[in-house]
């Protein structure tokens, strides 16, 4: 992978930002400052797709959506304010963790329904095709969604209409608490692409360069009018399905520890250090900067007002 060192360091910083954001969101959730539910992305931060996209390309996310937001360039302050239920949040406090969107940057929303976003972003892909400007649309979803109807309906439609789509399955091997081994007829989700006559690619989901490379190929194919690609990123979440207390987690300590040793952030850091593209001082400085950014986001959220109760009646219909 011949990415310039600056870009590689930027990827590392982004992964670190996602992790720090998630750690803070988790802590503030348990401190009662964030309500409802938070689904942490820790362990899955190697989102190599967005760094291969251009302005005007669109993505859609899942209930585990903070990482996708950050990778697409969302404002951490407005994200944190949304988690805090404040007026200054992306959705004016109406969405929360599971429903952050920033249509301005082409982030069409996290979605609380597994597989719920796949068809919406396929519509964005149809729009991109009709626009004819070479834009693409990306659907992020998990292994759980790959067993639901919209996945299959949309892959068939996108393949038939040659839509400029990337379907990115982040296979963390557990749909909530249930393992993919118990629920998938075939071990590789990517293998299903054959049924729709499109490329299906398996990549190491903790290797951001591998993902970036696979995405770049799929994007080039999509921009060339050759249709969609299904990419399966094999990865693992370190934390439970949600931060809610008392939820069962049937994964063994051993399995979790094995995956922690494959930490995508430590891996990239090691690669950069080995190339001489990152010193220990750089790493310390990066940590400090990221930590300060997250601190600023929390300060912004805490200083922001809650919405007025009657704002519950606003934004029902567009003018």
């Amino acid at each position: 992978m011949n990415l310039p060192p600056d870009k590689q360091r930027e990827m590392l910083r982004q992964m670190l930002t996602i992790r720090c954001f998630e750690e803070r969101a988790s802590a503030d959730y348990h401190a009662g400052k964030i309500y409802g539910v938070v689904h942490c992305y820790i362990g899955e931060e190697a989102v190599g797709v967005c760094s291969a996209l251009e302005q005007g390309d669109q993505i859609i996310s899942t209930h585990r959506g903070h990482g996708h937001c950050i990778a697409k360039g969302a404002d951490l302050k407005r994200m944190m304010a949304e988690l805090y239920g404040r007026q200054t949040g992306y959705c004016k406090g109406k969405g929360g963790s599971m429903h952050i969107a920033d249509f301005g940057i082409g982030m069409l929303g996290a979605n609380g329904i597994v597989a719920g976003g796949i068809s919406i972003v396929t519509g964005a892909g149809l729009a991109a095709q009709m626009d004819g400007k070479g834009r693409v649309a990306v659907s992020f979803f998990g292994d759980g969604a790959s067993n639901a109807g919209p996945f299959h309906e949309c892959l068939n439609i996108a393949a038939t209409w040659k839509l400029p789509m990337l379907y990115i399955c982040e296979n963390n091997m557990y749909a909530a608490q249930t393992s993919a081994a118990e629920t998938h007829a075939m071990p590789d989700v990517a293998g299903r692409a054959a049924g729709y006559g499109i490329p299906g690619v398996v990549v190491d989901g903790n290797d951001i360069f591998a993902i970036h490379q696979a995405a770049a190929r799929a994007i080039a194919r999509a921009r060339a009018g050759e249709g969609p690609t299904l990419i399966e990123c094999k990865t693992f979440r370190w934390r439970a399905h949600t931060e809610r207390i008392g939820q069962p987690d049937f994964r063994t300590e051993e399995e979790i520890e094995t995956w922690k040793r494959r930490d995508p952030i430590a891996r990239l850091r090691g690669q950069l250090e080995a190339q001489g593209a990152l010193t220990d001082a750089d790493w310390q400085a990066m940590n400090k900067e990221v930590s300060a950014t997250i601190g600023d986001a929390v300060a912004f959220a805490e200083a922001s007002p809650f919405p007025a109760p009657e704002q519950a009646l606003e934004d029902m219909y567009a003018a």
């Binding site: 796949i118 068809s119 919406i120 396929t122 964005a124 149809l126 309906e153 439609i157």
Partner: peptide, 22 residues
């Protein structure tokens, strides 16, 4: 279209959010 009303209902939403009027 294919007989896939679930997907198409969502595709309409996504196209609408991207500037079309499906």
């Amino acid at each position: 279209t294919p007989i896939a009303e679930g997907a198409l209902t969502g595709i309409a939403i996504g196209a609408a959010g991207s500037g079309y009027r499906p």
